[in-house]
């Protein structure tokens, strides 16, 4: 794999991105109450990552709608499909939604932001009929997530801990083909 160029795409607060090249790595550092939504396609090497900040509904005058789950989830799906993913074979992994502090944002109910973000993202995914395969959410620690597009692996690192594999999708090329011995 020496000739594969590794391109790391850093996804910051309120941003989202999709990649499909073998050397691509999608990365977001420091998910506290925010949710990192990973989308992977079972049939192509398309992957997406959104860094979602608030449940929404999004503020209509905002220049940064990607912060809000009700905008970001459909937008990430559309972007993934736009670069070649099959909508019907998309699957999701959720990271983040921690409760680092015991205070609440004005206008939100007493349920904390991290938990609420996870709930709304799950609801949006359910509406889009995209299954959640794995999640590392809740708790009190910040997380970093790295998505290796080629082998469809989701790595998660908690503050102060090692980087661990949270989930890996079945490699597209490893699907058994008819007539070939296993």
């Amino acid at each position: 794999m020496d000739d594969v160029v590794v391109v790391s795409r850093n996804v910051r607060m309120g941003e989202f991105a999709c990649c499909s090249a073998p050397g691509d790595v999608l990365l977001t550092i420091g998910l506290g109450s925010c949710i990192g939504l990973v989308l992977l396609d079972q049939r192509t090497t398309v992957a997406g990552l959104a860094h979602i900040v608030l449940p929404g509904p999004r503020v209509s005058s905002t220049r940064e709608p990607g912060k809000f789950a009700d905008y970001a989830v459909p937008a990430l799906i559309a972007q993934a499909v736009g670069i070649g993913a099959n909508r019907s074979s998309l699957e999701a992994v959720l990271v983040g939604g921690a409760s680092m502090f015991a205070f609440n944002a004005p206008g939100l109910s007493s349920m904390d932001v991290g938990q609420r973000n996870a709930e709304v993202v799950r609801a949006e995914l359910e509406q889009a009929r995209i299954p959640v395969r794995e999640a590392s959410t809740g708790g009190t620690k910040g997380r970093t997530v790295r998505v290796h597009v080629a082998d469809r692996t989701v790595m998660v690192k908690e503050a102060g801990g090692p980087e661990l594999e949270l989930w890996t999708g079945r490699p597209v090329s490893a699907r058994p083909r008819r007539g070939v011995p296993a």
């Binding site: 420091g30 932001v113 503050a159």
Partner: peptide, 11 residues
């Protein structure tokens, strides 16, 4: 808390 700077500030 003790945590990653970006997680603290973002939260």
């Amino acid at each position: 808390v003790t945590d990653m700077l970006a997680a603290v500030v973002a939260t």
